[in-house]
Amino acid sequence: MAGLMTAAIRGDEAAYAEFLRLAAALVRGLARRKLANDRVVGPEDIVQEVLLAIHTKRHTWRSHEPILPWVFTITRYKIVDVYRRNGKRVFLDVDDFEAQLAAPETVEPALPERQVEAALTILSDGQRRVVKSIAIDGRSISETATALDMKETAVRVAFHRGLAAIAARFGRTT
């Protein structure tokens, strides 16, 4: 393997790929044994992390030193690193979960009736009827068209413009 790496450093890409494949096999074996019961981190995650680390840090191997201890030291460091990061990620997940639990009460309260009425008053009569029919009464576009005796395209346009007007008036630009 040291020979392959030496050739790789001289620019031999085939030797480099061969070296990486051998390293991957070694790390895979090691990772399977060490992480036998782990469901979050798969051995292949470790393999790829280690290959990346070998790649970015290949200038820290010196040709007079044995290469296997170098590969294994990087592997051990990366296993610890992956676990630490996963630990962090799980911890962050808990935070996200808490934010979602709190959300229905605080982040998106249902619009109070009066606020909706206020939003609708800025619209023209035609737009207001369409928006009210779709957004508040819950009718579909075609039902609204029938109820208001309009063409469906006209309903779509009025609905779209009405929402745009409300968004422009009440601050959201989408």
Binding site: A8, I9, L20
Partner: peptide, 18 residues
């Protein structure tokens, strides 16, 4: 992993200072 190895192989030309 094999794709990763191909990508890394292609990136072999850049070498950092020891």
């Amino acid at each position: 992993t094999e794709d990763l190895i191909d990508a890394l192989k292609a990136d072999n030309q850049r070498h950092r200072q020891p």
